[in-house]
Computed example of a mutant assay.
Amino acid sequence: MTTTTDTLSLDPNAALVVIDVQQGFEDSAFWGPRNNPDAEDNIAALMDAWQRSGRPVVLVRHDSVNPVSPLAAGAPGNAFKDFVEKRGADAALLITKTVNSAFYGTPDLQEWLTAAGIGQLVPVGIQTNMCVETTARMAGNLGHRVLLPLDATHTFDLAGPFGLHRTAEELATATAVSLHGGGFARVVTTAQLLAAVAE
């Protein structure tokens, strides 16, 4: 039976997709300033709640092909952060990828979701405006119902063309507006999801 909290409906087999929560993202010299210091605690709380409820957790790891990236395959930073590693033993699926979308990884996420009869995804992780957003957009395009807890993600400041620069918080806000306003996902909070799981 689907549970509902503040009109938030959570399927009994909704998949929590934990994206790129890897040790290499601790390298502030490489990535720069980040936002949302509570992201890891919120991700951990969701993983715990998902596993207690028997819902599936999918782990996604980015194996960067850039040899100087802290996330490069074989580098120490490629490993999951300890709290994910600790909770990941019972994960339903581990996907490795070299691009932004978890749908372009190995094994095939969409194939697994279809076989499992899963139609609702909850993407969390790093970076909000990169791999989390890309995965959420593709999930929406593929017809999945996506709930994105913005406070269970984080990102970093970023420079763009023509001298443009945006802070991590500005980028996260833009992701929330684009995904929610554009109909790709419903942006929610960790608290809302925890309440829905507890019902």
Rank of each mutant, 00 (worst) to 15 (best):
F103N: 10
D82Y: 11
D38G: 01
A44R: 12
R34G: 00
Q120A: 13
T175E: 11
G105L: 11
P149R: 00
I95W: 10
N35G: 09
Q23R: 14
M130K: 03
Q22G: 03
Q22S: 05
D48Q: 10
G24R: 03
H154V: 00
A198Y: 11
G163Q: 14
D38Q: 13
F184N: 04
N66Q: 12
A172Y: 05
T190Q: 05
L10C: 12
G117E: 15
H165G: 12
G163A: 14
V124I: 10
K97C: 07
P107S: 06
V65C: 11
S9N: 07
N100C: 06
P33R: 14
G105W: 07
T114H: 13
A79R: 15
P12T: 13
R34S: 12
A185L: 05
G119N: 01
D151R: 13
S28L: 04
L10Y: 11
R145P: 01
P33C: 09
E133Y: 00
S101F: 05
D41T: 04
K97H: 04
I126Q: 01
A196C: 15
Q22C: 06
F80H: 13
T7R: 08
A185Y: 02
S28D: 14
L148G: 06
V57W: 05
L93I: 07
R55F: 06
V132I: 09
G32V: 02
A139P: 00
A89H: 15
L194N: 01
M138Q: 09
T175G: 08
L194G: 11
